[in-house]
Design a protein around this nucleic acid. Structure first.
Length: 480
RNA sequence: GGUCCCAUCGUCUAGCGGCCUAGGACGCCUCCCUUUCAAGGAGGUAGCACGGGUUCGAAUCCCGUUGGGACUGCCA
């Protein structure tokens, strides 16, 4: 029997890194086992589910390169079947009606000092109505064992399990039931999901076994509960408090391959030395059984490093293609949020970009950094970094002299990187200064900042006229 | 409170009884290279939570302690 796995997110917010990781591990398992990867949207909570969130899930998964073999299915479309089976469960006595209110339960719980539902309605023979939900009659004796591929057998004694709510008073099954029914209907063989769902696994197993008695008999799926992804406080990543939107990483210029590669390293490690692995290599090397048990911290610094590795490994053409959203105003399928491109379309020059691109490529770790590194090529006047201007132009007594001598020298020098380099080196020596000192005011004059692509290459791109114009302007600034 | 999960450098991890005076990666620090910044090269910093067992031998097995976390909703 070929494996069938599913990723079952609820569309209650943007797609976050935890979901991406769960999705990835499911996908990897399906690909390497020749199995089927199913996408099922758990949209039964009409209050919270929204269409745009669903679109967000699809878009994010496509960006990551995780395509579903079946689906997307919507759980809401299976509601009739859920209700039908819930009804059978009730008629067979596995479920019973309960009309307790939350505060009543809490009051009794407080008195007893033992938590959870106390089974008050278990044998009261409460008649069903619009105000009664259905609870599952948990066995008093014995235990339920969750066979987990990652953690081994996890034992849940029945005497500590409460009679949990399985069906709302509206008649609609709650998550544990609906989710389990869908897994049965779709013949899911491996349930790979977050560790936060481990406590609901025994409930689902109990109900699965109940359905086996009154409906088709099906083997239980294998379970694999992935360790949580946590923040610096070691708490489960929160959509509200932590920066976890996958889309925001795309907008900052992380490459999907790098993002996926990093995600695969959370809770799992390849056998070999290399941790930079393509999706194909991941499919080949990934082992569900080898996934860790301990929670993992989502470390943006390490992901950023990996992104840099991917960026540098690209061909210049691929790099330029990937950088498009941060270079070309209003071109491409999407626009990065919170990112301004300071130049106009008219001033942008593709040939200048092409020449500088290789130098930019090895200097950045996120594509969003491209813009600030090349803007001086497309702006009438460079954006001046105040701190840099103050330090190397205004406060440096040698600045004016360096700039004036440089203007003389560059005016009669061939605009070729090596020649310019030699010319400034000679000038520096004549002035008794280090090249690293003389290049500073020139760099700020031409680019506006003290960091950026190599100076002489940048000068060649700007050309003699532009260089002289900016150097002269800088002399004025330096003179105060 | 109850149930369950977890515990190797700051972080992600390798390790599944001797190969470990614990390896790699990120970060950080130093140096080299150098037209800035990166990249690259060389080196360094830092860890088996604690206590008992088991064993000739324990990071590895068992128990306990401590510490984290998840769940505990007519949300999913």
């Amino acid at each position: 029997m070929t494996p069938r796995v599913r990723f079952a997110p609820s569309p209650t917010g943007y797609f976050h890194v935890g979901s991406a990781r769960t999705s990835l591990f499911n996908w990897l398992y399906a690909r390497q086992s020749g199995g089927t990867f199913i996408l099922r949207i758990e949209d039964t909570d009409a209050e919270r589910g929204r269409e745009e969130w669903l679109a967000g899930i699809i878009t994010a998964m496509a960006w990551l390169g995780l395509s579903a073999d079946e689906g997307p299915f919507r759980q809401s479309s299976f509601e009739l079947r859920h209700r039908e089976l819930a009804e059978k469960l009730y008629e067979s006595g596995f479920l019973y009606a309960c009309d307790c209110k939350r505060d009543q339960i809490d009051t009794r719980t407080k008195d007893r000092k033992t938590p959870g539902y106390d089974g008050y309605c278990r044998d009261r023979g409460v008649m069903r109505s619009e105000t009664t939900g259905l609870r599952f009659r948990t066995p008093d004796l014995g235990e339920t064992v969750v066979r987990d591929v990652i953690r081994g057998d996890v034992v849940f004694p029945h005497d500590a399990m409460e009679d949990f709510m399985a069906v709302k008073s509206s008649g609609a099954p709650l998550f544990p039931l609906a989710n389990m029914i869908d897994d049965r209907e779709m013949e899911i063989t491996h349930v790979i999901r977050g560790e936060d769902l481990l406590p609901t696994a025994p409930k689902q197993i109990l109900m699965w076994q109940a359905l086996n008695e009154i409906d088709v008999t099906l083997d239980l799926p294998a379970y694999a509960h992935l360790p949580m992804l946590v923040n610096e406080q070691r708490k489960k990543l929160s959509k509200r408090k932590d920066p976890v939107a996958v889309e925001s990483y795309r907008d900052k210029g992380y490459l999907p391959q790098a993002f996926v590669n990093y995600l695969s390293l959370l809770g799992w490690a390849p056998k070999g030395k290399d941790e930079i692995l393509s999706l194909e290599q991941l499919v080949e090397q990934f082992r569900l059984e080898d996934v860790n048990h301990a929670p993992a911290f989502f470390d943006i610094a390490k992901m950023t490093h990996i992104n840099g590795e991917y960026l540098r490994a690209m061909t210049v053409d691929a790099f330029m293609e990937s950088a498009k959203p941060w270079v070309h105003p209003d071109e491409g399928d999407w626009v990065p949020s919170d990112h301004e491109i300071p130049w106009t379309r008219e001033r942008f020059q593709e040939d200048r970009w092409r020449v500088i691109a290789p130098f930019v490529q090895e200097r950045i770790t996120m594509l969003s950094e491209v813009t600030a590194m090349i803007d001086f090529l497309f702006l009438e006047t460079p954006r001046f970094d105040e701190a840099a201007v103050t330090k190397v132009l205004v406060n440096d007594a040698d600045a004016v002299l360096i700039l004036e001598r440089a203007i003389e020298v560059f005016s009669v020098t061939d605009f070729v990187p090596e020649v310019l380099h030699a010319a400034l080196a000679d000038l520096s020596e004549a002035m008794g200064m280090k090249l690293r000192k003389t290049q500073a005011p020139i760099r700020v004059a031409l680019t506006g900042t003290s960091v950026g692509p190599p100076l002489f290459e940048s000068m060649v791109i700007l050309g003699l006229d532009e260089v002289l114009k900016r150097l002269n302007a800088a002399v004025v600034i330096a003179q105060g």
